[in-house]
Amino acid sequence: MKHLFEKILSSRQIFKGRYLKIEQDEVQAPDGRTYVREYIKHPGAALMIPILPNGKVVMVHQYRHALKQVFLEFPAGKRDKGEDSLVTARRELMEETGYEAKDWKFLTTIHPVIGYSDEHIDLYLAKDLTHVEQKLDHGEFLEVTEVDPKDLMQLVQEGKVSDVKTQIAAFWLDKFLRGEWN
Rank of each mutant, 00 (worst) to 15 (best):
L4T: 07
L4M: 12
F5I: 02
L9N: 05
L9F: 06
S11W: 01
I14V: 14
F15P: 00
K16I: 04
K16N: 06
L20R: 14
E23G: 15
E23I: 15
D25F: 08
D25A: 08
V27A: 02
A29Y: 13
P30K: 09
V36R: 04
E38W: 02
Y39Q: 03
I40R: 14
H42W: 01
L47P: 00
M48N: 14
L52D: 04
P53L: 11
P53A: 13
V58S: 06
H61V: 03
Q62W: 06
Y63F: 15
R64D: 04
L67I: 09
F74V: 02
G77W: 06
G77Y: 10
K78E: 11
E83C: 07
D84L: 11
S85L: 06
S85C: 07
T88G: 07
T88P: 03
T88V: 10
A89T: 00
A89Q: 04
R90S: 09
R90C: 05
E92F: 04
M94Y: 10
E95Y: 07
E96C: 04
E96K: 13
T97F: 00
Y99H: 11
Y99D: 01
A101F: 01
L107N: 02
L107Y: 02
V113N: 14
D118Y: 03
E119R: 05
H120T: 05
H120R: 09
I121K: 07
L123M: 08
L123A: 06
Y124T: 00
K127Y: 07
K127V: 01
L129R: 11
V132P: 02
E133P: 00
Q134A: 09
K135T: 07
G139P: 03
G139R: 11
E140F: 08
L142D: 11
T145I: 15
T145A: 14
T145H: 10
M153S: 10
V161S: 05
S162Q: 05
K165N: 14
Q167S: 05
A169W: 00
W172I: 10
K175W: 03
K175M: 14
K175Y: 02
W181A: 08
W181I: 15
N182W: 13
